[in-house]
């Protein structure tokens, strides 16, 4: 009996000792570059027949939270003009910044950009690209302004893996920004 008790106590002690081999959570903190963020969205408008490129950006270099967005430009366009609209997405929280536009282009059959001006009379958008299933993508397209006015343009990136059908409905937003739009 006494023997058993002694053995048991020793086992417990051994277990207790093994438990104290603790790890320090501080040693394990590291920068994780495998997470994908979209920290900047840039709309590039090129007036037809010219090489004038106007860029309007949303930038929040550290992603959601932390510091507030550093840029959220007002889109300023001229009335009754035709523009080529290209969009660029970057993850600038990494060094070097990673280009999300390329990754969207590679997986264009899962993505759809949606440009919605309000009021809708301000601008008309026409898609200029198609994915393998012949559905629009919106990486490049044409924007035609009409009369002068003030409003907004909603820019959405719909992530639609397995459900892309050419409409904005399926999937969820990866980008959803309301840029101010000024046509004058």
């Amino acid at each position: 009996m006494r023997m058993t008790r002694k053995i048991s106590s020793m086992l417990l002690l051994a277990a207790a000792v093994s438990f104290t081999q603790c790890k320090d959570a501080g040693d394990d903190v590291q920068i994780d570059d495998e997470n994908e963020l979209i920290t900047s969205v840039t709309l590039k408008f090129t007036e037809e027949g010219t090489t004038n490129v106007q860029s309007f950006s949303y930038k929040d270099a550290d992603g959601d939270g932390g510091n507030a967005p550093t840029a959220f430009d007002t889109i300023a366009l001229k009335p009754n003009k035709t523009y080529t609209l290209a969009i660029e997405l970057l993850d600038e929280s990494k060094t070097p910044a990673s280009n999300i536009t390329e990754e969207v282009a590679e997986e264009s059959d899962e993505h759809l950009f949606v440009y919605t001006p309000s009021p809708s009379t301000l601008l008309t958008y026409t898609y200029g690209d198609k994915d393998v299933n012949n559905y629009a993508i919106g990486l490049t397209g044409k924007a035609v302004t009409t009369a002068a006015g003030l409003g907004k343009m909603k820019v959405q990136l719909r992530h639609q893996p397995g459900s892309k059908n050419g409409t904005p409905g399926p999937g969820s937003d990866d980008v959803n920004l309301d840029f101010n739009l000024k046509v004058q």
């Binding site: 603790c22 997470n35 994908e36 990673s98 893996p161």
Partner: peptide
């Protein structure tokens, strides 16, 4: 729901969140 868009990262099929909590 979404895997990372970057193919090489997506191929790892890693969880987007991992917590390992040890308590004594």
């Amino acid at each position: 729901l979404h895997r990372p868009r970057n193919d090489s990262i997506a191929a790892l099929n890693k969880p987007e969140l991992t917590f390992k909590l040890t308590t004594l």
